[in-house]
Design a protein around this nucleic acid. Structure first.
Lengths: 215, 215, 215, 215
DNA sequence: TATGAATGAGTCTTCATTCAT
DNA sequence: GATGAATGAAGACTCATTCAT
């Protein structure tokens, strides 16, 4: 919860926001290309359109940069998700919209999301804490959506929760397998549709079967 | 295809094998704890019970070490998978055995597997090529198992292939969500059983539905 | 001799004086706490209640700050000394008053005086010259006091001068040994009295002994 | 007491000793010329006849260098003092020998001793602790010598201890006033003799005067 | 073959000083 | 006169790799 503060030597808030955006953009470019460790602060500064010294007026350590990036991306993803399901009432459609938004977000931000998975080990404890909290929030959103979706049916509670944990991450697999998938599918849209279908089929293991057995 | 050769200054093959095993064990220890970049060659040498100079008689660069580790792990996983499904004839049981073996392998080697996912970017091109080839082989194994499982039914070819791509990776999610899952489930065995059920339910989207709709 | 001038961009003399006092106060705070090199101009500015830019309207370099501080402290010490012996006629009492004032000044300004001893190497040549000149003046004051004190007796000239050189500095030892002394003495006042006695005894080596031996 | 250990990456003890001596010599040269903060590690390495990297095989931080230097000098001074008074039985001669050795040591190591006084603030806590302990030991040596010297007489205990604290430091004043003293004295030997006389006169304040008053 | 000391290029970080507003 | 953001040169420290013994 405790939002890890990045110390800055600058007072002008507007300027901080502007520079921070530059830093985020530059950092994403360099980080996705080379990863956190191989990226040099110099390169990030350059890509951000700042000098070394200037960059360090807005951060204290290299770790701050990765923190800022994580903070930004997770916030954006969360906001887009909120927008995507806003106003949808039907539980089934609501879940589908969320799954679709998740797929889309993962697909459109492949590189940065892969980067985030890879480099979470490079986060300091506090940052990791913040990120994990946001992840949990995300999972809980899906848990809620699933619960509404199966409202009225008897559900296996453990399975519902497991599904909530799995759902948001399955699209990430698409990212690491994209080269293979691209060759086999007509379009990435089809891949996404396929994943959606797979997932929707999968969650059917949640309701307790009354007298008929699955399998 | 060309298996990236690690150049060594040593002739005695037996010695090479022994030393390489030492290197692998030491490297896994250090790599899983700190990641590739933060691990120093010095530390790996020490953990391997070798001196700096001696280690460099068996490798040429730090990258060689990660290559050797990847090579070793992927080979071991493949062999264990082969053993796990050997002799099973019934296609359904064969698929389940493979899924179960995959879950078990991921669970038992969590740290090293997480490391492999994270650090694949640290592999040089040739190594990456080798690893990807082995991954493809793994996927194709699952593709074959699925094909046998649905033999006789009309299958949606694209979906079958997609499922083959997804199945081996879904257990990895368990690894990154283990802290959350541990709290919610009685035991990790239950988690694994849950994932298996989810997956088995999911692949039911593969057969083309003739006239009846699911839901 | 040439009093090293600190260049300023400001015309208003009254303002210069006010700002300079702020700078001195801020600098002493920071310098005594961290020494010259570890003190940053930023920090001094802040402690002085000025902005970076404003501070640099009154100094040209960081060295200027230390110069201003030295100049201020030595001037204050000199003035207090003058006041302390003003009006005292009896040579013996006059010397004692000076020694006492010196002890008191050293004790009350321990930190800044220690700082001045430590960091004299950080002064630029001109500043050092000024400081040394003022020190010489101080020494000569003691030389004069001693000469009056022993007026009428045959004195060993070299010893008299040596004593003049030693006397003002002996109290400084108290400063570097204060932790030890505190433990052993009832009060710092007693320490000071002890030092005074020691010194008064010591200077008895100045008069040439005619035929009688001491001890 | 706890002797602060300087971590080294080197195993060969003889080599460590040799290199450490090089480092000490190089560091003293650079430190005395520029002080701790203005001295660069690169320069010290060069003066020590080592490369940057090599130097850092024998130390972990720049602070280690100053620690090593302090450790070395204080040890040498202590050993020379021991030698200087070894075998002397007569308490008065013993004290004089100690005072003389102290004067000589301070004079011959002026620069490094001035450096040590100035830069003790640059020592980390542990090092400072070690140094202070050694200083205390030195003081206690003088306390012992004084006690023997006045054996049989009724002494003012506080004064004796104060004298022990002052004696070893008075010669240091000579160092900071050497330019002035040089001009006034025939030779530095004379200065030293003068200081000795002053001190010997001064300590006569230690014995309690029975019925005769001093002064 | 084994050893481990030496090397130096490369990195993060700091901070005195400047200057446009 | 005041402000504070920008600058970049400089410094401490790391570590993969080499090589003489």
């Amino acid at each position: 919860m405790e939002k890890r503060a990045v110390k800055t030597k600058i007072k002008n808030e507007k300027l901080i926001d502007r520079r921070r955006k530059q830093i985020i953009d530059g950092a994403i470019k360099v980080f996705t290309a080379k990863g956190f460790h191989k990226a040099t602060v110099r390169e990030i500064a350059k890509e951000a359109g700042l000098t070394m010294g200037s960059l360090y007026n807005y951060i204290a350590t290299k770790e701050d940069i990765i923190h800022i990036v994580y903070d930004y991306i997770t916030r954006v993803l969360r906001e887009e998700m909120k927008k995507a399901i806003a106003g949808i009432k039907d539980p089934e459609k609501r879940l589908q919209a969320a799954l679709h938004q998740n797929l889309k977000a993962v697909y459109q931000n492949q590189e940065i999301i892969m980067f985030m998975y890879r480099e979470s080990a490079s986060l300091d404890k506090e940052s990791l804490y913040t990120v994990l909290a946001r992840e949990t929030e995300y999972i809980e959103l899906f848990e809620g959506l699933l619960r509404e979706r199966f409202k009225g049916q008897r559900v296996n509670e453990e399975r519902l929760r497991l599904a909530a944990d799995l759902l948001p991450y399955i699209p990430v697999i698409m990212t690491s397998r994209r080269w293979s998938l691209k060759r086999r599918f007509e379009s990435m849209d089809n891949v996404m549709k396929g994943i959606l279908d797979f997932v929707l089929q999968g969650i059917e293991f949640i309701p307790e079967k009354s007298n008929t057995q699955e399998k």
